[in-house]
Computed example of a mutant assay.
Amino acid sequence: MEITGTAQHEAWQARALPPVEQLRPDLWAVPVPIPHNPLRYVTVHVFALDGGGLGLLDAGWGSDDSWAALTGGLAAIGAGVHDVRGVLVTHLHFDHLGLAARLREATGAWVAMHPADASSVGRISAAGAAAFVASEVEFLVGLGADREDAVSDVGPPDRLESFTRMAVADRLLEDGEQADFPGWRMRAVHTPGHTPGHLCFAEERTRLFFSGDHVLPRISPNVSTTFAGSADPLGDYLASLAAVRELDPAEVLPAHEWRFRGLDSRVDALTAHHELRLTELLAAVRADPGSTPWQLAAHLTWSRPWDEYERRMRIFAVTETDAHLRVLASRGLVVGSGGPVPTWTLAVR
């Protein structure tokens, strides 16, 4: 894998925000910070459109600081929010969709997503924060959490209120459809896994591949089960990796970290990473049969000691463990006990 986003990479190593970059005469990368998050920023890609105006790929985290960074980035390229005509959203997470509603209100721009993620956003918005919290707590209890731990990790409804007010897409993009970016040939590539409706975009004129969170150069994106999501998100993700491996783009432009070349080698590394995780989890099931996903997560290797995990970090770890268990089950290697809180043991072979 070859690093092509050298300024982004250098900024990452310096723990700084990278600069606004002009990548082509008609394309820019604008970093928008993510508060209190190790990913630090999301890259909003800005496209000059034939006939005037701009198109954005992703919008940024929904906060005043992120809005200031986005508007400042547009000013740095000689433009403004009033120039935005439309926003393509790779997926429903708040660092990608959070500012879309504010952009639409300020400019009248359309917002486009895959139907699967658009449906999820609509469902969460209609249910409200209290119902969202209650559903997530019950889901974690079903993975083996003590109710008190689940309530503490999910947090109160007011902490998640902003997540229930995200923009509901007014345009839908299915796999293979062209986005409405005049002068560009942005083909939507449905890559479920990180979310059910995650979209990458293959620009067919320049051979640029905008990978969103699907393929990142340094880390594997979180692939987790959720209370209303796919039955096998990791299986979906591995299939989506295989589906993009042979695209052979000129450059990969992810939403985080830095640009690179060598999509095939990065896909191979991500696939190998998950196979290693599956092997480690299988060994944990063998050592502690009859364990829940909550219990098994504590036996896996994470970026820091398990007793330091809490709140969203612990939720992501446990739900990622559950996603890996489902793949092991689909391969006939483990079986769940059934019941309200399934436990897992090795399959009899």
Score class of each variant (00 low, 15 high):
47 F>Q: 01
69 A>W: 00
157 P>V: 15
68 A>L: 08
60 G>C: 04
157 P>D: 05
110 W>K: 06
140 L>S: 01
35 P>L: 02
121 V>P: 00
78 G>C: 09
53 G>C: 03
136 E>T: 14
26 D>H: 06
67 W>Y: 10
126 A>P: 06
78 G>T: 04
51 G>N: 05
101 A>M: 13
149 D>I: 15
148 E>V: 15
85 R>G: 10
85 R>D: 07
142 G>F: 09
51 G>V: 09
90 T>W: 05
83 D>V: 08
92 L>Y: 13
53 G>T: 15
79 A>E: 05
141 V>H: 05
103 L>M: 11
47 F>A: 08
97 L>C: 12
156 P>A: 04
98 G>R: 02
51 G>Q: 10
89 V>P: 00
119 S>A: 15
54 L>M: 11
121 V>S: 06
63 S>G: 12
89 V>H: 01
96 H>V: 01
43 T>G: 01
106 A>E: 01
25 P>L: 13
50 D>L: 11
62 G>T: 02
79 A>N: 10
118 A>S: 15
96 H>F: 05
100 A>Q: 10
152 S>R: 15
64 D>T: 15
150 A>E: 00
87 V>K: 05
31 P>I: 02
118 A>Y: 07
59 A>Y: 02
77 I>C: 07
50 D>E: 15
92 L>M: 12
58 D>P: 07
58 D>H: 10
23 L>Q: 11
41 Y>F: 12
128 G>S: 12
37 N>M: 05
119 S>C: 15
33 P>I: 00
123 R>M: 12
94 F>P: 10
112 A>D: 05
81 V>G: 04
47 F>N: 02
57 L>R: 01
86 G>Q: 14
145 A>N: 08
101 A>V: 14
140 L>F: 14
50 D>P: 03
159 R>Y: 04
96 H>T: 05
107 T>M: 11
95 D>R: 11
83 D>S: 14
